[in-house]
Simulated scan of single mutants.
Amino acid sequence: MPLSLPLVCHPASPCGALRGIEVELTRLGGRRGARRLALRYVANGNLRALEAPFHVTHKDRADELWRHTCFEAFVRIGDSVDYFEFNFAPDGQWNAYHFEDYRTGMTREAAVDPPGIGSYIRDVPLAPQHKAGLEAAGVDPFDRFDTPFFMLTATADLERTRLPIDQPWHVGLSAIIEERNGTRSYWALRHPPGEPDFHHPDCFQLELPPARPA
């Protein structure tokens, strides 16, 4: 079952466009799933006010995606100080980094696969017959999300790193939202005191239990 988690907007960067952002996270099971996190970011509000594409047009790896609308995930294993950062842009660009410690020793992480970013937008609620047809076909109509909303799906895939799965995984989830008026807001599961800082240990708010016994 996916975990549904709300992101909190940093008080120093209010967002006039969005009512909220929710993230659904699933740790994929099976032989190749324990090191893979399926993510679904859902932003609802005035989508026309956002400075962001709503369709995937790129699949390449790119740096500094955080300068514009970007959805992120951070992963730290057990008591280690090193961690990983994933960036997912609405146009399909992505990146993954490894840090040796807090904001130090950053390198591009090579042992990851492209996340296969997908997007979906809904401007108006579904008609009852359309909803019934989707449900009959076994398709989730997403009526639990307030309309209008934008959804981005991606997978943080660390399978090739062979990271330990007999320890808890500490996860941070976040987003940068750019509006057409030039303002940017910063969203996370939890914010540390002071300025927005997704790398801060306080932001690794979600703890996933070990996928197998030690």
Rank of each mutant, 00 (worst) to 15 (best):
C9M: 03
A34Q: 13
G33Q: 11
G20M: 09
C9N: 14
P11L: 07
I21F: 05
R35D: 01
R27D: 09
G20C: 01
G29N: 13
T26Y: 04
L5F: 02
G33D: 10
L25M: 15
R19P: 01
R35F: 05
A12R: 11
R35I: 03
A12Y: 00
V23S: 01
P14I: 03
E24P: 02
C9T: 05
T26A: 15
E24L: 12
A17K: 03
H10C: 04
R27A: 10
L5I: 15
A17L: 01
A12H: 00
L28S: 04
G30C: 12
G30P: 11
R31P: 03
R27V: 09
E22L: 13
R35S: 12
E24M: 09
T26G: 09
A12D: 14
R27G: 05
E24S: 13
G30H: 10
C15D: 15
T26C: 12
L18F: 00
A12M: 02
V8W: 03
G30D: 12
S13P: 08
L18P: 00
G30M: 08
C9G: 00
S13M: 00
P6N: 11
R32D: 15
A12E: 13
V8C: 07
G29T: 15
R27F: 04
R32L: 15
L25Q: 08
R36V: 15
R27C: 05
G33N: 11
L28K: 06
T26M: 08
V8N: 07
E24H: 09
L25R: 07
R31V: 10
T26V: 13
R36L: 11
L25A: 13
R19Y: 02
A34E: 12
R32Y: 15
E22K: 08
E22R: 14
L18Q: 06
C9Y: 02
G16A: 13
R19H: 11
H10D: 06
V23M: 08
G30W: 10
L25K: 03
P6F: 09
V23R: 03
P6Y: 09
C15T: 01
P6H: 11
G16T: 07
V8G: 05
I21C: 02
G33V: 07
R31E: 15
R32T: 12
E22T: 15
R35T: 08
L28D: 12
G29I: 04
I21L: 11
G16M: 06
C9A: 12
L5Y: 06
G29Y: 08
P14V: 05
R32P: 02
V23Q: 05
G33L: 08
L18I: 01
A12L: 12
R19D: 13
P14W: 07
H10N: 06
E24V: 01
G20P: 04
V8T: 13
R32K: 13
